[in-house]
Amino acid sequence: MEQVAAGTISEPLDLVKLSLGERVFIKLRGDRTLTGNLHAYDAHMNLVLSQVEENIHIVDVGEDGTAAPPRIERRGFEMLFIRGDSVILVSPLLE
């Protein structure tokens, strides 16, 4: 138990590793956020997620240039590969 209690995180990606198999929240470029089960990742932050829900945050601009209140569009995917260059943030989804 001491050994485990003393387990160290030596690099940032170790933190992502801890979330393997867990549900994570991911922020992407283009005003998108995802939640899903993290299956795999690599050094580029390419990710494989399952049971993904994508939220796209959209602000519609009317003819006269006034912005409508932001709305959220939702999509679901069963399995998704995310290219790392669009990933902004990965965080465990804790209740």
Binding site: V4, A5, G7, I9, D14, K17, L18, E22
Partner: peptide
């Protein structure tokens, strides 16, 4: 939780 996750990964 973090320790548990770490232990599990190992």
């Amino acid at each position: 939780r973090k320790q548990v996750m770490y232990a599990l990964e190992e």
